[in-house]
């Protein structure tokens, strides 16, 4: 029977763990497209071992195989190993301060690291929810829904945080379709019963991928209103922020 790669490596094999980490580092250093042969030659690890470890790291999604099936690159999960410190430029802070002067709601700017949410500029007068908790329950916040809508991935049923939380995957999928259509994510009392938030994405000027989210938080009942002028202000800010963050 075929040897199962996952089972051939145990905690009793420090050399295998060392090699795996060295491979991870080598791929990170080589950039996109390093081949198994390159890595084996560079690290002087026997080819068969290198191939097995590479397949294991790909199976665990720390690495990905590129479409030519020869080259490797760091996978999304590798981001969890060392979250990049996100710096917020002064110019972006100035945009946020202007926004806070115009609206009476809490205004937060959050970045995305893999599937985690990190506040770049939280509103000091209206402290936002804990970013860890927000990252665990992406389905229940507007900033989280922006991220989910961006990736269009299968949804696991989420946790019911309040009686209003949307947990049904089909219903949630419908909401995400709405987010993709309108560009605005919204939730009323789904994360904390009395609060709601609406958010728009800050997108890179080049390819338009999601860089950050800009959110307003306020009483649930008021978030539920159309708030068209507010959304317009938010979208204006997002456009201003895009070149500063991307």
């Amino acid at each position: 029977m075929s040897p199962d790669a996952a089972r051939t490596i145990t905690g009793r094999q420090p050399q295998a763990v060392r090699s795996a980490l060295a491979i991870l580092e080598a791929v990170a250093a080589a950039g996109i497209g390093a081949t198994a042969k390159d890595i084996s030659a560079e690290l002087r690890i026997p080819p068969a071992t290198t191939y097995r470890l590479l397949n294991l790291l790909v199976a665990e999604e720390y690495l990905v195989r590129l479409p030519d099936l020869r080259g490797f690159a760091l996978g999304r999960r590798a981001a969890n190993l060392a979250p990049a410190p996100l710096a917020t430029p002064t110019a972006a802070r100035a945009v946020m301060d202007r926004l806070r002067g115009r609206v009476r709601w809490g205004a937060h700017l959050a970045g995305y690291v893999g599937h985690r949410l990190v506040f770049l500029d939280p509103d000091p007068d209206h402290p936002p929810a804990d970013p860890g908790e927000l990252s665990r329950h992406l389905h229940a916040s507007s900033l989280g829904r922006l991220l989910l809508a961006e990736h269009d991935e299968p949804l696991a049923p989420g946790t019911r945080l309040t009686p209003h939380t949307v947990v049904d995957p089909h219903e949630l999928r419908r909401r995400l379709d709405e987010v993709r259509e309108t560009g605005v994510a919204r939730q009323c009392g789904e994360f904390r019963a009395e609060f709601g938030c609406l958010a728009v994405g800050v997108r890179a000027p080049g390819d338009g991928h999601l860089v950050a989210g800009l959110a307003l938080t306020g009483p649930a009942a008021r978030v539920a209103a159309p708030n068209e002028d507010l959304v317009e202000v938010l979208q204006g800010c997002a456009v201003e922020l895009a070149p500063l963050l991307a």
Binding site: G31, I32, E61, V64, R65, L66, P67, A73, L74, G75, R76, A78, A79, A84, V113, G114, E150, H151, A204, G206, D207, H209, V211, A246
Partner: peptide
């Protein structure tokens, strides 16, 4: 099912 842009680590995506 090829690797798509969203499967890659942010730093590798080139877009920034």
């Amino acid at each position: 099912d090829e690797t798509t842009a969203s499967d890659l680590h942010l730093a590798s995506r080139g877009g920034g």
